[in-house]
Amino acid sequence: MSMKLGIIGGGQLAWMMKDAADKLGVELIVQTPSPNDPAVSIAQHSIFAAVDDAAATEILATKCDIVTFENEFVNLAALSLLEKQGVCFHPQLAALAPLLDKYEQRCYLRDLGLPVPQFLALSGEKKLESQIENLGFPVVLKARRHGYDGQGTFIIPDFATLSKIVNQTHSQFLVEEFVPFTKELAIIAARSVNGEIVIYPAVETLQKEQVCRWVIAPAQITQEQSLQIEAIAHKLLTSLQYIGVCGIELFLTAQGKILINEIAPRTHNSGHFSLDACETSQFEQHLRAVCGLPLGNTRLYCASAVMVNLLGYENSHCDYQKQRQQLANIPQATVHWYGKTEARPGRKLGHITVLLDQDQTNGVEDIIHKIESIWYPQ
């Protein structure tokens, strides 16, 4: 009898678990708002409800052995009642609790002794000027909950802009120093039920308007920096007693210092390269971890790999078949198309991964330029 895994969320991160689920004999059941969401097409059963609908999750739990998460926009308090009734969540709710609010996440990392930028939570009881005077401008303003792909994150150049945004919204905000980084990095790590930890090679990422455009694996960093990042992942997952895959975004400063940007308690865009470039993809790794199976090898099959997100640039219902075929013709390329029925600017519609031999690694920028010149209108 196969394992039945419930997934809260039915987007592309759940959709990309299909091949691993078939391989491992895992049945996927998703809770997702829309019949048009990508994972509906690969799930054995779907429950159509918002991801923070705990009543729907209670129904989901009756149909599966374990419940996991595709995104973190859940009602933790309501789910804790289900956990007390015996529902098994992986990662556990105790591991998610310090991470879902970005201010609380920052405090948790700081208290663990892990490197983070200077930060504070805005308080309505104090004057705005006095709260941020030690940070200087620019600063980064982040909504404490429900921000992703650039939503809820602002680079603030001056006090007038900060005051306007804070006064026009009702969100709770985290403010932190702007880090003049030389590279943005990320790492995918996984921890099993038994405490085994595996880590993928650190990657370099590029964000535009806070949305990931591309990933290069492995990142060109020193061995010392790589070991430091791995140590961060080990310490974090062990402290949380985390079960599953976790993405960690980082900054590298001009002085060679590593700072943590954000933690994503799930599979992550920066690990998509692993579908084609690694012995065990991050999606198979997550299923292995949460289902109590031995973790897989994280090594790269190739010298390096490039992953480029195919982002929407217009409002349309086009499937972009012509561009997708041109991209698929690039040597050693694989196009992953998420099957979304509607494109809009910045929406992740798919991605392409290109595997590179040792003699091709100097041509990474040319490959990225070629992909983007095919995908985006001139």
Rank of each mutant, 00 (worst) to 15 (best):
M17N: 06
D19C: 03
D19S: 13
D22M: 11
G25P: 09
G25Y: 08
I29P: 05
Q31E: 12
Q31N: 14
S34F: 15
P35T: 06
P35M: 12
D37H: 09
A39Q: 13
S41L: 07
I42D: 11
H45W: 09
H45V: 05
I47R: 15
V51L: 07
D52Q: 10
A54R: 03
L60I: 14
T62E: 13
C64H: 10
T68V: 08
F69V: 01
A78D: 13
S80W: 12
L81G: 03
Q85P: 00
G86P: 02
G86C: 08
V87R: 12
H90S: 14
L93N: 03
L93Q: 05
A94N: 11
L96Y: 08
L100Y: 06
P117V: 05
E129I: 13
L135W: 07
L135G: 01
L135D: 00
V139D: 00
V140I: 15
L141D: 00
R145P: 00
G147F: 04
D149K: 03
Q151G: 00
T153V: 15
I156V: 15
I165E: 04
V166H: 06
H170N: 10
L174M: 10
L174H: 03
V175S: 01
E176L: 10
E176D: 02
E177R: 15
T182M: 12
T182N: 09
I187V: 15
I188H: 09
S192D: 09
A202M: 08
A202P: 15
K208D: 06
E209C: 06
C212D: 00
R213L: 14
A217C: 14
T222S: 15
E224W: 10
S226Q: 13
Q228R: 15
I229F: 09
I229C: 05
K235N: 10
L236D: 01
L240V: 04
Q241S: 15
Y242W: 04
G244V: 01
V245W: 03
E249L: 06
F251Y: 11
F251T: 02
G256N: 07
G256V: 07
I260A: 01
I263E: 04
P265Y: 03
H268Q: 03
G271F: 09
D276K: 15
E279Q: 12
E279P: 00
E284D: 02
Q285M: 14
H286C: 05
V290Q: 05
V290D: 07
G292N: 07
T298Q: 09
L300E: 11
L300I: 08
C302K: 10
M307I: 05
V308D: 01
L311P: 03
G312Q: 05
Y313T: 05
Y313H: 14
E314D: 11
S316L: 04
Q325P: 01
Q326H: 12
T334V: 13
H336A: 04
Y338M: 10
T341K: 00
P345D: 01
G346Q: 02
G350H: 11
I352G: 00
L355F: 05
D359R: 00
I367L: 13
I367F: 09
K370H: 09
Y376G: 01
Q378W: 01
